[in-house]
Design a protein around this nucleic acid. Structure first.
Lengths: 217, 217
DNA sequence: CGGTCACTCGAACAACGATCCGGTGGAGGG
DNA sequence: CCCTCCACCGGATCGTTGTTCGAGTGACCG
């Protein structure tokens, strides 16, 4: 009786819910990365048993899908009048969010059908349609912009955030020792110029938008 | 004596080697996908014990890194005189190879430092330099083209190859039931127009190359 | 008061990556 | 011819993972 763990107070915080699981999952992912997310570790942080999570969530993949969609709530849906300004802002914030949660890069290869992602994709299509972009340019524009931001964030997260310092140093040495085999790469490659990611990103984005804009008329 | 498994013949094929492990890993990945690659399954296909693999390879991640680099041997390094034709061909073959091995999409988030990848990246830089592209456009062009092809292959592999039919159908239904919430997306989204990936890809690539070309001179 | 229902969790299972350590056979020197 | 060495092999095993089973527990409703 006196030993019984009385129900609510001694577990941390409010009762368990799908939302609280996802919030804690995002926090855990932010702090320790994708491969350290375990159902047991997640449950421990929530003050519950690991198997309890399966009442609120079907599989671990569900947790990952929910966590991935959750972070996009931080991407504001622009209200610019100018279509190009709005699209630029959306894509930029999209990228910033991906880089703020580097573990997301490893999850981009799964279907993203959460409400936050869909709402922002819908805005992208609507903005392009409003600008007067018509098929077949419309699909190409939406695909191209999405793919560009996903690829950029994936590569930058891989090299600057997920890779530890020793990996980067080893890569640099690896390149130095083969300088004659990859001359152009060694002279101008991403490992020699690790700064300027932002500037390069926006330059490429500008090229894409120039191409889209040229189809209007 | 007669019971002893005489050494070479009864195991399949030539003696074990790092190369043979990688070849079999690629075959296994092609047939069953990334999450079905196990050291035990791989060893079984090679006719050896699972622990033997660790003599030739340090970890499973090494196998994945080697397999990922191996498939890029199938991407020819162009010899076109026209820089734009060469770059277009390289990027197109790069994408085709990624799509021919859909499991590669899930591995793009790791450092790619294999000889095949480096040689082709070096060609890309050399071609752009030869075309007269100078900094800061050079880095932006190389990054942009790489990121674009990676993102495109990642998204297409996610939706058309890795996702099974029921996932796609469920996604379609999911969208249909929320048609009013995402009007633009439902009308023009990727799930309604699953064809035209190739055409959209080349259109976006053209926009990028137009932007790069405009910086020359 | 009795029963239903949402919710919790310890124990257990199968599968995984990886390591330990005892083999085994062929090459090469005495 | 024999002995030694060493590259190479693999059974047993460890710790960890995702997930399931089934037995609980308490709040609420009639």
């Amino acid at each position: 009786m006196w030993l019984r763990t009385s129900s609510r107070e001694d577990r941390g915080g409010p009762p368990l819910s799908r939302q609280r699981i996802v919030e804690e999952a995002v926090a855990l992912l932010d702090e320790e990365g994708a491969d350290r997310l375990t159902m047991r570790r997640l449950a421990e942080r929530l003050g519950t048993g690991s198997t309890t999570l399966y009442w609120h969530v079907k599989t671990k993949d569900d947790v990952l899908d929910l966590a991935l969609d959750a972070i996009f709530a931080a991407v504001p849906i622009p209200e610019d009048q100018n279509w190009r300004a709005g699209v630029t802002r959306l894509i930029g914030d999209w990228r910033a969010t991906l880089l703020r949660h580097p573990w997301s890069a490893a999850l981009l290869g799964r279907p993203m059908l959460g409400p936050n992602v869909l709402a922002r994709s819908d805005f992208l299509y609507a903005a392009l349609i409003g600008a007067g972009v018509v098929e077949p340019h419309l699909t190409a524009a939406a695909f191209g912009l999405s793919n560009y931001v996903v690829g950029s964030a994936l590569m930058q997260a891989t090299w600057l955030l997920n890779a530890d310092a020793e990996t980067r140093d080893a890569a640099r040495d690896h390149m130095d020792h083969q300088r004659d085999r990859y001359p152009a790469l060694a002279a101008h490659g991403p490992l020699t110029a690790t700064d300027g990611w932002d500037e390069s990103f926006e330059r490429g984005l500008g090229w894409l938008l120039d191409g889209v804009e040229a189809t209007i008329g």
